[in-house]
Design a protein around this nucleic acid. Structure first.
Lengths: 228, 228
DNA sequence: ACACTACTGCCAGAAACTGTCAGTAGGGAG
DNA sequence: CTCCCTACTGACAGTTTCTGGCAGTAGTGT
């Protein structure tokens, strides 16, 4: 069992560095010889880890995560499947594709009888088809992750177009619309922007001066909605 | 690598049998000695597999599934997390708990930085709180899985109470209500029953004479809704 | 009492893993 | 081009782990 643990440690170490790391460093950190490290890397790659190695440079792990073997109950599997299906239906296209991919990956390793149960699951997700958004929400999620300011062109209820700079901190998926939650520099307050009314937006280089977590917490407090 | 594969094979073999299986049989099927089989069983148990062994009887695997190590992209993890969170909010209590459990299991093995990202994810699920159901939907899901007939007491829109026998084949999660989909013996047609209007129900011993899959397919065809 | 089974400890042989050494090849800096 | 750093592969011996056979204990049902 020591070996599999070591492989997980190696993954975690790789993740910690953002820059390429040499095999020598990784070998020392995991307490193993260089030769064995190369074998470990090969082993991880054969298990599907996206590790790239270039001579003269080092190793980099493409963002992503490896889950160790896990046991799920029937209910939990059903919850994961149902949830993924909802995501595949009710969110923006890129996230939806990811949901479908995740579902396919899980289904691929389930025994045949269970796969069948997934295909015609005892649960059906029926949500009103969501209006298509013009804006690329995957870009917006990236801005949120990186705590980047966004220059937003928005059309309000009356159709009036305005341009403002916002600090987006969360994306809300409501029943029939997606909403960008942000601090609005223009209003000096929290504002919600319906994704289907966003005319255009650009992610700026500048990071906003506060932490996303803090903004979200303050917003929650202001809304009086229980943090979940 | 041969060992981990063998363990998965063993799990699958265990799953195939519904009745208890002796270690001897399992050892032969996985091509290994009895002594090693006992070690393999112990190894699986230590990894969280719900395997029970009783002297004089054999081994049984409690329903559930072990996923092998898998790699997920950042988007896929986000999709799983968001989906589980939706399930935890928008479905019946037992499935919701399963969603929360699955989420916790995944979070537990993710690196700290990612766990933080989950806690205050870039995505928020906001769904209107669903009306509480009097009926125990987990029991209904069990009936669906087992293709059992159900004796249903139902109050319609006008408050009129009726009793009927139905063949439930699916559970629908809509925005603000859960719906049992079934063939109704009384009407000789498909009918939907809102969970919050179900006064009472009992799962009968008798199985209904058709396959759940087929019923679902016919229902889909009748509705003109694309499968999936 | 008997057959069947789970489960554990022990030990020798088999298999896998590991480290050391040697060698090939690609990338970057001068 | 040369030099250094790096990824990568093969071979081999020492170490560790795994495996199978054996013996023995104990729980369950007939």
């Amino acid at each position: 069992m020591a070996r599999s643990e070591r492989l997980l440690t190696l993954l975690q170490t790789l993740r910690r560095y953002r820059r390429p790391v040499s095999g020598m460093v990784l070998a020392e950190e995991t307490g193993v010889s260089l030769r064995t490290l190369y074998r470990d890397i090969a082993s991880l790659q054969s298990q599907g880890a996206d590790i790239e190695g270039e001579p003269g440079i080092g190793y980099v792990l493409r963002p992503g995560f490896m889950l160790p073997p896990m046991m799920f109950s029937q209910d939990e599997i059903e919850a994961l499947v149902l949830g993924s299906r909802w995501v595949a239906r009710a969110t923006d296209s890129r996230l939806a594709a990811a949901g479908a991919d995740a579902l396919a990956k899980i289904a691929a390793v389930l025994p045949a009888e269970m796969r069948e149960a997934i295909d015609q699951a005892a649960v059906v997700v029926a949500t009103r088809r969501i209006t298509e958004d013009k804006a690329d929400l995957s870009l917006m999620r990236k801005a949120i992750r990186g705590e980047r300011m966004v220059q937003l062109t928005y059309g309000d209820v009356n159709g009036a177009i305005s341009t403002r700079r916002i600090w987006p901190f969360a994306l809300g998926y409501f029943d029939n619309a997606r909403i960008v939650m942000a601090w609005c520099e223009l209003r000096q307050d929290f504002r919600h922007f319906r994704a289907d009314r966003i005319v255009d937006f650009a992610v700026l280089e500048a990071r906003y001066p506060r932490r996303r977590v803090v903004l979200a917490r303050e917003w929650h407090a202001q809304q009086g909605i229980a943090n979940n």
